[in-house]
Computed example of a mutant assay.
Amino acid sequence: MQLNGLIIKLPKEIKLLIGAFIIVLSIGFYTGLLFVGETSSANPNGIEEHYLGNEDDENAKVMRFKKSDKEMLTLVHNHILSMSIIFFLVGLLVAITKLNGKLKLFLIIEPFISVILTFGGLYLLWTGMLWMKYIVMFSGILMTLTFVTSTAIVLIQVLQKK
């Protein structure tokens, strides 16, 4: 079966379903990014402070405490499960777009690597591997860029006529 470009040939009702799904999913994804920006200052030191606390910083504007075992396991568990489902569904949609094979493969596989690096990295940062904050930052940015690119491609192609 030829998958490349199949999305353009789908019936109008399926295209509307895909478009609505991508829009609502994107709202949820970008809301999550706003939350990250509010809680960790969206920089490596802010990420470290959010998970490891800042009790030793006398000049801290907001006092933060190190996350507990339960908090970290819940965060890692919930994000890895939910993000893997999100990127599986987006990957299925990217698979049926008309796109260069290598770019398509990258957009389908990369988010899973970034999910492991981002949330596994947060756990390792929490255990004391402080340099992981840079891996978390990089993989989080890459995951976001991949999401934006994939969803834009899907939306553009879903709007194309047969």
Results as ranks from 00 to 15, higher is better:
N4M: 03
I8Q: 07
E13K: 13
L16M: 10
A20W: 12
A20G: 15
I22W: 03
V24I: 13
V24M: 11
S26D: 08
S26I: 03
G32A: 04
L33D: 09
L34E: 14
F35G: 15
V36N: 08
G37H: 08
E38V: 13
A42H: 06
P44V: 02
N45Y: 12
G46E: 01
E48C: 10
H50G: 07
G53K: 09
N54C: 06
D57W: 05
D57K: 09
D57F: 07
D57N: 14
E58D: 14
A60W: 00
R64G: 02
M72Q: 01
L73D: 12
L73T: 14
N78M: 12
N78D: 14
I80H: 02
L81S: 11
S82T: 13
M83L: 13
M83I: 03
M83D: 09
M83N: 11
I85E: 05
V90N: 05
G91H: 07
I96N: 04
L103N: 11
L103M: 13
K104N: 01
L105E: 08
F106W: 08
F112N: 04
I116A: 11
T118Y: 03
G121L: 00
Y123R: 09
Y123I: 08
L124R: 04
T127I: 15
T127D: 14
M132N: 00
F138K: 11
G140T: 05
G140E: 06
T144D: 04
V148I: 15
T149I: 11
V154M: 02
V158M: 04
V158C: 07
L159C: 12
K161R: 14
K161G: 06
